[in-house]
Design a protein around this nucleic acid. Structure first.
Lengths: 233, 233
DNA sequence: CTCTCTTGAATAAGTCGTACGTAATGGGTT
DNA sequence: AACCCATTACGTACGACTTATTCAAGAGAG
């Protein structure tokens, strides 16, 4: 049984956060700490700490004499991992998946190019290993195993780029890939062309061919975009 | 007079946040809420709420019986606007400026390409207007006025891309550009070639030439990278 | 009579102090 | 080496008080 009961704080946060990001409380809605405390049967202390966290995500703003006001979407810290996961689990999952994929298409090629220059031997080895793993699991409905190698591959590329801003997008890419697999028809194997591209990227990074690694990765992301068009509203 | 006194909460947060991101408290350092409360002369309540915010930024983690532990850099939410501004104000400002510029070089060209497709007439007008403004202020030590147009230009491009993830990077780009100007020799006018590129980008977006807008913007970011190499350790 | 400015009461967040619960740690015992 | 228990610092709860902000009533000017 999924018992997430890590204390009242987490419970309230995991209730309010998704509710707000899903649009259950439209921008402009005012929440009162007293009411929230009563609703969740916790002390005002806990509610206040939760509000402070939501405030740091720019989901809400708290003003005296007026209450906690839900902020418009443009204000949200859309790069906060929790905001991302909440939105991916909620109503505008398609939109979120889309914007994240676009972000991927911008970042990953450049990251791959940098990885070709900065990757150490261990990272190169991990890259080819996971590319091989993708090849090995690309046929016969082994999508779960394939996904593991796929996410690991992209995570290595991002960290090997040597840029911490890129590295921190590993979770985002993982979320996108996972989401893709989850909503994919479970009996269609991955595109062989995509698998081949990953192998070639690993090779390009290994030999230090930045331009080639970048271009190949761009082709991968283009494929991801196209794939998204097929299964998104 | 700079009175930031928006309450004890802000005061403590603006003391601890920069201190941690600057490395004054190396990863693994344990802070005790009681001590912090005493040090800042506030109640434990305030300290706890601040800790919760720092925890949501993944700067620290709070565990029972042990205290508040500072997390390693790899854990930090490096996309949090406050973390970014703290780091830009602190010790590893050069590194931060560098990683943000790399991020720019990945994102902005793609954003410009999308803007060429999605920009509405008003955004096109704003683009050309600010490009013109850059031209007008590019000579005669008007760096401040130039900076205004420059940041506005890039902000419009990012929002016109139609991708909210890109749009939210407007502040980041603004910070980079501002930082560049601040540390630049104040009597050297902007590179005429860069100014020209901006004008051409505005035009490319206006006529909907995505490929050209992307390529031109890529040249701008390449220039920004090169410029960074000159004045960064 | 209408409009504006002032004043004051109401309200909900902000802060504080205390008390107690709870989990993780470390040392001492068997 | 395994177990038990006291310690410790965070986690939660509660009540009181403070303060900023709002809204409305009333005074005053035009």
């Amino acid at each position: 049984m999924e018992n997430q009961g890590q204390g009242p704080h987490t419970r309230v946060l995991e209730a309010l956060g998704p509710a707000i990001t899903a649009g259950d409380h439209p921008p402009g809605t005012v929440l009162r700490t007293e009411e929230l405390a009563a609703e969740f049967d916790v002390s005002r202390t806990v509610v206040r700490e939760v509000i402070r966290v939501l405030e740091s995500m720019r989901l809400v703003t708290s003003r005296r004499r007026v209450g906690v006001t839900v902020l418009p979407t443009e204000e949200w810290n859309v790069y906060d991992p929790r905001v991302i996961s909440w939105r991916l689990a909620g109503r505008d999952r398609p939109r979120q998946l889309r914007s994240l994929t676009v972000l991927r298409s911008a970042v990953e090629p450049v990251a791959a190019g940098l990885a070709a220059v900065h990757a150490d031997p261990a990272q190169c080895a991990a890259l080819t290993e996971h590319a091989m793993g993708m090849v090995a699991t690309s046929r016969g409905q082994q999508l779960d195993a394939y996904l593991v190698h796929d996410t690991a591959f992209h995570r290595v590329v991002l960290t090997a780029s040597g840029n911490e801003m890129f590295a921190r997008l590993g979770d985002v890419v993982a979320a996108v890939l996972t989401g893709r697999t989850a909503h994919h028809v479970m009996f269609t194997d991955p595109d062989p062309a995509a698998v081949s591209l990953h192998v070639q990227v690993a090779e390009a990074v290994r030999v230090g061919d930045a331009a080639r690694a970048e271009e190949l990765t761009r082709q991968i992301t283009v494929g991801a975009m196209a794939e998204l068009d097929v299964l998104a509203p």
